[in-house]
Design a protein around this nucleic acid. Structure first.
Length: 470
RNA sequence: GGCGCCUUAGCCAAGUGGUAAGGCAGAGGUCUGCAAAACCUCCAUUCUCCGGUUCGAAUCCGGAAGGCGCCUCCA
């Protein structure tokens, strides 16, 4: 069953066929490191991280590239406001970016190129465009001449003529066409700058991705991804400058994730509703954020609210409880082949359904629905039946490979393997067991309640008490 | 003005022309010392509305209403 992906370039789902068999080059636009990243930024990070994992699950070797834009107007503005060097700003937020990714279970990409490390490649690309008549210099700036590229507008489905009619574009006397965009910007006093054939300056935003993408993957990427807002102008401009230079498609598949609203409103500075990931994960399980995004198709708009994240947490807990049962049963009795096959088959079929859903434009919402079906199968299974272990073993494969491996969700709720914590909780469980034996319900309930207050949840089962982190 | 998207239960959400997955919340029950977790049962004769095509439409076509995004170096 081939993977289908919705390609923004052609506005339809297409069979995914990488340029080189067995290998995928996958470029996702990364952060501009001028601030902490917010919940909206988390969506592409999580979705494309999961897609990358799914491609690997399917046996493809993925060269995953997520750039760090560390030279930009916003960074300079921030540095000036704080009276520090721009590199101090970028260092701080780059670190925060990696830290946030780790907490969200976003695996490091194969490459995280920083724009400032690729100035040479960018200059070479700009020079090539100038030499071939696709770009022109004006007072130290270099602009791409969109009139020189016949496909301009093809990604975003825009018509240049009509755009100009209703355009809200800065009129700039230096540009031949208002839609021409800067490849290179002349440095103003106090700005970070690099030497170039056109004097000191710094790269424009769009050229960064083209230069770094080409550096790591050649002229044509298999997948280029980002938020829907990047379609125009960012990705349109990347297409123009890259394809004008190389004469080849810059990316075979363009993927764009939908936007995130906060309680029905667009997240914006002016509304003061920016939610930073670092703040959210102080209050909520970071894995609930992953589940929150995975529960909806990546191209649809999504609405964030406290209620939504609590629902996602409840859903996550349900999966975790099922996983705990799987682990518990398999610890007691290893799987045997003599089991009745019907339920095992049912789990296998659900796994196949999940793969089918993910193959259909990475429909994680449908796939997770199937995972809940597996959880139901697991939970309704009598732990002591002779078939239990075989079903659990099959379910464990799905949870491990798709749940953990692809969705990147952690299901274990252990105290990080801290032996003292384990022993202390065990001690309380034993003390409580004594109290219960003596029908001292007051004491046993106090122990349970107090432990719950510090985040340890006890569950009494026929064969003893288990605990987990709440 | 241009380009595009969305509307499925109280809420979130999947849905591939063949008779509405799943989650959350809620009700009742089982289990439990009581809980928790889990299980069982119930919870959309119907998919914003109006037409059309079809044996058959949430799915296709046309129209209406409502909501949203991009066209501002915001993912």
């Amino acid at each position: 069953m081939p993977l289908k992906l919705y390609n923004t370039m052609n506005r339809k789902k297409e069979d995914f066929v990488p340029l080189n068999e067995g290998k995928v080059s996958f470029y996702a636009c990364g952060p501009t490191v001028y601030d902490y990243f917010h919940i909206g930024n988390a969506r592409p990070l999580i979705i494309f991280d999961s897609l990358r994992r799914y491609l690997e699950y399917k046996g493809l070797e993925v060269n995953y590239i997520v750039n760090i834009t560390d030279v930009d107007d916003k960074i300079i503005k921030k540095a000036n406001a704080e009276g520090v060097d721009f590199s101090a700003v970028t260092r701080k937020y780059t670190e925060a970016f990696y830290d946030g990714c780790a907490k969200l279970g976003v695996r490091p990409a194969t490459h995280h190129p920083k724009a400032t490390d690729f100035i040479g490649q960018m200059l070479a690309l700009v020079k090539r465009l100038v030499d071939e008549g696709h770009a022109y210099e004006a007072e130290g700036d270099v602009y791409f001449d969109i009139g020189s590229f016949k496909g301009y507008g093809k990604l975003s489905g825009r018509d240049i003529e009509q755009m100009q009619a209703g355009a809200r574009v800065d009129v700039d006397e230096k540009k031949r066409n208002p839609l021409d965009f800067a490849l290179w910007k002349a440095a103003k006093p106090g700005e970070p700058s690099w030497e170039s054939p056109w004097g000191k300056g710094r790269p424009g935003w769009h050229i960064e991705c083209s230069a770094m993408g080409m550096h790591y993957a050649g002229d044509t990427l298999d997948i280029h991804a980002g938020g829907q807002d990047l379609i125009f102008p960012h990705h349109e401009n990347e297409v123009a400058q890259s394809e004008a230079a190389s004469g080849k498609p810059f990316a075979r598949y363009w993927l764009h994730n939908g936007f995130l609203d906060i309680e029905g409103e667009k997240m914006s500075k002016s509304l003061g509703n920016f939610l930073m990931v670092k703040d959210i994960i102080e209050q909520y399980d970071p894995m609930a954020i992953r589940v929150f995004f995975l529960l909806k198709h990546y191209r649809s708009p999504i609405d964030f609210s406290e209620e939504r994240i609590k629902e996602a947490k409840a859903a996550l807990d349900r999966l975790r409880n099922a996983y705990a049962k799987i682990t518990r049963v398999l610890k007691k009795s290893p799987a045997n082949d003599s089991a009745e096959k019907e339920t095992v088959e049912a789990v296998k079929n659900l796994k196949a359904s999940m793969e089918e859903a993910l193959d259909d434009d990475f429909n994680t919402a449908r796939a997770i629905g199937n995972l809940f079906d597996i959880a139901k199968t697991v939970n309704s299974m009598d732990e002591n039946s002779s078939d239990a272990a075989a079903v659990m073993a099959e379910a464990k494969i799905v949870f491990d490979t798709l749940g953990i491996g692809v969705f990147g969700i952690t299901f274990e709720q252990e105290a990080g393997g801290d032996k003292i914590v384990d022993d202390l909780v065990q001690l309380f469980i034993e003390l409580r067991a004594d109290a219960r034996k003596n029908k001292n319900w007051e004491l046993s309930d106090t122990i349970r309640d107090r432990l719950k207050d510090i985040g340890v949840v006890l569950e009494d089962r026929p064969d003893g008490t288990t605990w987990k982190l709440g």
